[in-house]
Amino acid sequence: MRAAIGGDEAAYRRLLTDLSRALRATVRRGFAGVSARPNEVEDVVQEVMLAIHLKRHTWDQTKPIGPWIMAIARNKMIDDLRRKGRRTEVPIDGMLEILEAGGHEDAIHAHDVNRVLSGLNGRNREIVQAITLDGHSALDVANRLGMTEVAVRVALHRSLKALAETYQETKT
């Protein structure tokens, strides 16, 4: 992580790949009692990774990174359980009012994430696709789309923040 914050993109990619494996095991263990489906586990893993990415400046580099990662994972797992809990604890006889009141779905699903991604305006979607599908760097994408590298980076960062906010909105 230290190398990544210092600007080493390859180191960051390796870290994230290792991290996704470790987190998958952690989340699975954390959800052992709640019988989560594999795609639910994966949703939480992604939410944790996004939070780690957007909040990596809150890691104190003089301290070991493990507890910091675990603290973020714990927070996000609790959030997720809370969302699910609210969904399952609603008594059936109150359900009708909630439905009539247009009660919205609390839990976030993979399709919410996909909706955010497809809801991005054309340019941003092109950028995200070029980076994810074709594995281009920000510089390559910039050259291809005739944009500056900075503009590509800004657009990508905005898209990631929008993604994090989707999780946030379904929380309260």
Partner: peptide
């Protein structure tokens, strides 16, 4: 998740 990793890595400079 692999796509997310690509996005996050590309956003490393932020």
């Amino acid at each position: 998740t692999d796509d997310l990793i690509k996005m996050l890595a590309a956003d490393n400079a932020s």
